[in-house]
């Protein structure tokens, strides 16, 4: 009985089973909640373009994959020992086939290569973004990675928040990012891609939200024990709601001066709760950068 089972499992039609299995796996899984994917259902033009690009590239490549799968199945069926195919023990070259074999992949890669050039420039995270028909000046925010939370400084408003990034939905978000700890990576998947945060260096990221909403942002680069807790909510608010929120922050009692900052920068064990600071040293971001920038300043600061 068992032997029969094994034989039926491993005999010639094995490849049918193979395909079936793949299909089943995919169907079962995609039944799960892909609608919650920030990448497949993005909330901003950057992420949507990234998605289009990805789906388009997949479509192009399937034109190779499907023939490969088909050809594999067909060859295995037809040319198995005892199959219908004619055995040609010496057939091992054909200029025509060779041309196709090099040419096919080459054309596809040229096509995708063209997309790469166009879209890498179009979706350069450093490129400032504009929104039509509204106040298009970008909304600046400075993000600092700490162990293990995010500090957001709003230079235009003179306020700061922890683990909550709020911005008016009508304006593009222009982020300056650095780290006061190890290297991390800043990402709000629903709005666009990620960029590393490194001590002593500033990186830039420009994003837009299509619609008001709350999105999850996080550090994606492993950075130590508290790494799983290093996420935050990013809120794109309508102008009115944003003003209200600003009022709440302005009424908060705590202020972020350098003494308080040092306390904040200490590692936290569990998830760092959202905090609001009604005022902040305007130069804080630059101070954080300067701690690491040039050897001479570091020496002057007594880092040795």
């Amino acid at each position: 009985m068992a032997r029969l089972f094994i034989r039926s499992l491993t005999s010639a039609p094995l490849l049918h089973l193979y395909g079936l299995m793949m299909l089943c796996g995919l169907v079962v899984l995609s039944g799960c909640s892909l609608q919650s994917s920030p990448l497949l259902y993005p909330k901003g033009p950057v992420a949507s373009t990234e998605r289009e690009l990805m789906l388009f590239a997949i479509a192009i490549m399937l034109t190779v994959l499907i023939p490969v799968w088909g050809l594999t199945l067909w060859c295995c069926r037809r040319y198995r020992k005892g199959g219908k195919g004619e055995y040609r023990p010496d057939w091992c070259s054909s200029t025509l086939v060779e041309c196709g074999v090099w040419g096919g992949p080459l054309i596809i890669i040229l096509l995708i290569g063209y997309l790469v050039v166009v879209y890498t420039f179009r979706l350069d995270p450093y490129k400032p973004l504009t929104v039509h028909s509204t106040d298009t000046t970008p909304f600046p925010v400075q993000a600092v990675a700490l162990d293990w939370k995010w500090l957001f400084i709003y230079p235009e408003l003179g306020i700061a928040t922890v683990n909550e990034l709020v911005f008016p939905q009508s304006r593009p978000l222009a982020l300056e990012i650095t780290s006061d700890t190890v290297m991390t990576s800043f990402m709000i998947p629903a709005l666009g891609g990620q960029i590393y945060a490194m001590a002593g260096m500033t990186t830039h990221l420009n994003l837009i939200a299509d619609q008001p909403g709350t999105f999850t942002g996080r550090n994606t680069q492993f950075s130590g024990t508290g790494f799983p807790q290093m996420y935050f909510s990013a809120k794109a608010l309508p102008d009115k709601a944003f003003e209200d929120w600003l009022g709440t922050v302005r009424n908060a009692s705590s202020m972020l001066n350098s003494a308080h900052y040092h306390q904040l920068a200490r590692p936290n064990k569990s998830y760092a709760p959202v905090e609001y600071f009604s005022s902040v040293d305007t130069d804080l971001f630059n101070h954080i950068l300067a701690r690491y920038s040039a050897p001479s300043t570091a020496l002057a600061n007594g880092a040795l």
Binding site: T10, A12, L14, V64, V68, L71, T72, C75, C76, Y79, R80, K81, G83, G85, E86, Y87, R88, P89, W91, C92, S94, V97, G100, V101, W102, G104, P105, L106, I109, I112, G113, V116, V117, T120
Partner: peptide, 29 residues
Amino acid sequence: GIATMVIAVPTGVKIFDWLFTLFRGQITF
């Protein structure tokens, strides 16, 4: 990015060459 994708070309060639080796063969599994 482009340099990386160029590697897909010789890799694709290999895949097809293996398939064409199976083609007109006498295959035992």
